[in-house]
Design a protein around this nucleic acid. Structure first.
Length: 467
RNA sequence: GUCCCCUUCGUCUAGUGGUUAGGACAUCGCCCUUUCACGGCGGCAACAGGGGUUCAAAUCCCCUAGGGGACACCA
C-alpha cells in the first residue's frame, strides 16, 4: 500500500503558521514512506472562498518547498461526483431530505441551549415519506447517523478516541444551494483519492467520528487519522487564518527575508522532536519524522526562536544562494548597490548580526546611500569637542595609501596613541561619521569596504555639520 | 450546558517505574571586544493539585482544577 497524504485547505484565508505545519507534517510523512502528497482545495463554501486565497496558499506552499505530487484538486469541480453519491444515499435511505427552515433550526438551537442541552437536530424530517412535500420546496440532505453504539478510532498521536453516537446528530451533507458540506465532500474525496493517512488539526476530532459513520454507511474503509494539536499565539489563544495579525502569515516571512528552510525547521520542532536535535536538514527530517513523536499538547508560537533558527541558517545555507536572494532584497528595498562595496563582503560582515535578509539590507544601507545626519539628534549623543579627533584622523588617511583592513587597524591604534585618547572614543566618532549610527560592525572593515574616497567625503561632511 | 482533547523550566521539548529531571530559545552574570553583535563559559528556572498501586512514580490508575476544541446550509 502506498502512503498518500493530503493537505486540504479551504481558500477562505491566508496560509498561516498552523496550516503550514499541518502541510509540512503531511508532506514529511508521505516522503518518509516514499509516498505521495496531494493538494486539494476545499472550496465548497462558494460565498467565502476566493481565488486570491487560493493563489496565496499555493504560493506559500511553493515558497516553503512543500510541493505536491498530485492536484491541486478543487472540490467545486467534483460536484457531479458528490451528487451521484448523495443520490445513492437517498435511494438507500442512508440519507434523507430535510425541509426545515433556517429559522426553525435557529430557534431549536436557542431553545436547547437555554435548556442546558447539547444543540442537535431534532430529526423532524428523518422519518417522513420522500414524496411528503412538493418537489419545489427547497431542502437539504441529511445523513442518517446511527443512533446506537459508539464510534471508535485509533488516532496516531492521541491513541484511542471514542464517541457515543447519541452525542451526534444528523448532519447536513448537501446544502439547499446544491453544494455539499465539508464533512461529506472530505469523506468522498479522501476515499476517491486513495488517501491513506489524514493529518489535520485537532478541531477535526469531532468531525472524524461523523466522517467514519458516513464511510461505514457506504461500506468503505476509513483512512488512518492523526490529529495535530493547535498552535497558539503568544496569548495562548488559537491562531486563525482569518487573523488579521500578519505575525502568522507565512508569506509575511517571505517578505521579511526569512529562509523557507528556517521556517520549516522551526515548524518541525514546534510539536515534534527527535531527542535534543534542533537543526535538521531536509534529508534528516524525511528520515526521522514519525507520527509517534508528535506532541499531544498545543504549543505557543515563539518568534524569538524562529529568529534564532533563521540566524543559524544564515551560516548553513549556500552562500551563493543567499547572495542571489539578497540582491533581490536590495532591489526591493530600493538600495542601489552598483556603486558600493561587494555585497558578498558586506554579507560576511552582517550575517552574524542580522535576523533576516531585510535586516541585512537595512543594516548595510549606509554603505550604498549618502548619509543623512540628524544634527539635533546627534548633538545630544556626542561631545562636539571630539570633532578634532576626526580632523586628526582625516589628515592621516588623506596620505594613507595602503587601504587594507590590518593596516587601517594599525593606523587607528596609532591615532589613539598619538592623541592620548581611548580607542573607544576615537572609534565612536569615526563610526558615527561613516555610518550615521552609534552601533555598527567593526570600524576597520567599514573603512575598508567603504573605500578611501567615500570615507574622506563622509568625514569632511561630518566635520562641516558640527562646526 | 453536553461531549472530546490536553497539562514537565517564561517558551519549545527530552523523559515510557529507580535520572543530581537533560537540551534548546529567552533571560541574567562573567569572559572576549574599539561600539553593537557574534562567540565562549556559567547562573536562574519545571513534573497543575489531591488520592491510590508499588520497596520505588514525572512515568501506571482514579478524582479535582486549569486550558483548548466541537456542538453551523464554515472548514
Amino acid at each position: 500500500m502506498q502512503v498518500k497524504t493530503r493537505f486540504s485547505p479551504s481558500p477562505t484565508g491566508i496560509l498561516h503558521i498552523g496550516g503550514a505545519r499541518t502541510a509540512l507534517y503531511s508532506w514529511l510523512f508521505a516522503k518518509r514512506y516514499n509516498g505521495k502528497f496531494l493538494l486539494r482545495i476545499e472550496d465548497t463554501d462558494i460565498n467565502r472562498s476566493s481565488n486570491f486565497y487560493n493563489n496565496s496558499i499555493m504560493k506559500g506552499l511553493k515558497w516553503l518547498n512543500l510541493n505536491w505530487d498530485e492536484g491541486p484538486y478543487f472540490q467545486s469541480n467534483r460536484l457531479a461526483r458528490y451528487n451521484y453519491v448523495i443520490k445513492l444515499m437517498l435511494e438507500n435511505k442512508i440519507a434523507y431530505k430535510c425541509y426545515c427552515s433556517t429559522e426553525r433550526l435557529l430557534n431549536l438551537r436557542k431553545k436547547q441551549i437555554t435548556l442546558g442541552k447539547k444543540p442537535k437536530y431534532d430529526e423532524k424530517c428523518r422519518n417522513i415519506p420522500d414524496d411528503y412535500y412538493n418537489s419545489n420546496i427547497s431542502y437539504v440532505v441529511r445523513f442518517r447517523n446511527p443512533k446506537k453504539g459508539k464510534v471508535v478510532f485509533l488516532d496516531q498521536v492521541r491513541g484511542k478516541i471514542e464517541f457515543w453516537n447519541d452525542e451526534l446528530d444528523d448532519l447536513i451533507i448537501k446544502r439547499s444551494n446544491g453544494f455539499p458540506t465539508y464533512n461529506f465532500s472530505v469523506v468522498i474525496d479522501d476515499y476517491d483519492m486513495k488517501i491513506t493517512h489524514v493529518l489535520r488539526g485537532e478541531e477535526h476530532i469531532n468531525n472524524t467520528v461523523r466522517q467514519i459513520n458516513i464511510l461505514q454507511s457506504l461500506e468503505k474503509k476509513a483512512p488512518i487519522y492523526a490529529h495535530l494539536s493547535t498552535i497558539l499565539n503568544h496569548n495562548g489563544k488559537k491562531i486563525s487564518k482569518r487573523d488579521k495579525d500578519s505575525f502568522f502569515d507565512v508569506l509575511e516571512y517571505k517578505k521579511l527575508g526569512f529562509f523557507p528552510e528556517a521556517i520549516i525547521n522551526y515548524l518541525l520542532r514546534l510539536g515534534w522532536s527527535h531527542g535534543n536535535q534542533e537543526i535538521f536538514t531536509i534529508k534528516e527530517m524525511k528520515k526521522f519524522f514519525s507520527l509517534k513523536k508528535i506532541t499531544k499538547s498545543s504549543s505557543l508560537f515563539d518568534k524569538k526562536k524562529l529568529i534564532w533558527i533563521n540566524k543559524r541558517y544564515m551560516n548553513i545555507l549556500s552562500k551563493s544562494d543567499i547572495i542571489n536572494e539578497l540582491k533581490i532584497f536590495y532591489l526591493k528595498q530600493k538600495v542601489e548597490i552598483k556603486n558600493g562595496p561587494d555585497i558578498k563582503q558586506v554579507f560576511e560582515l552582517m550575517k552574524n548580526r542580522c535576523s533576516s535578509l531585510t535586516d541585512v539590507v537595512e543594516s548595510s544601507r549606509f554603505f550604498y546611500e549618502e548619509l543623512i545626519i540628524d544634527y539635533e539628534k546627534l548633538k545630544e549623543n556626542i561631545n562636539i569637542k571630539n570633532v578634532f579627533i576626526l580632523k586628526f584622523f582625516l589628515k592621516k588617511i588623506i596620505f594613507f595609501h595602503d587601504w587594507k583592513v590590518e593596516k587601517l587597524s594599525k593606523l587607528l591604534k596609532l591615532c589613539s596613541l598619538e592623541l592620548g585618547i581611548s580607542f573607544s572614543k576615537v572609534g565612536k566618532i569615526i563610526r558615527l561619521s561613516l555610518t550615521g549610527k552609534e552601533h555598527a560592525p567593526c570600524i576597520t572593515s567599514i573603512l575598508y569596504l567603504l573605500g578611501k574616497k567615500k570615507c574622506i567625503l563622509r568625514i569632511k561632511n561630518f566635520i562641516k555639520i558640527f562646526e
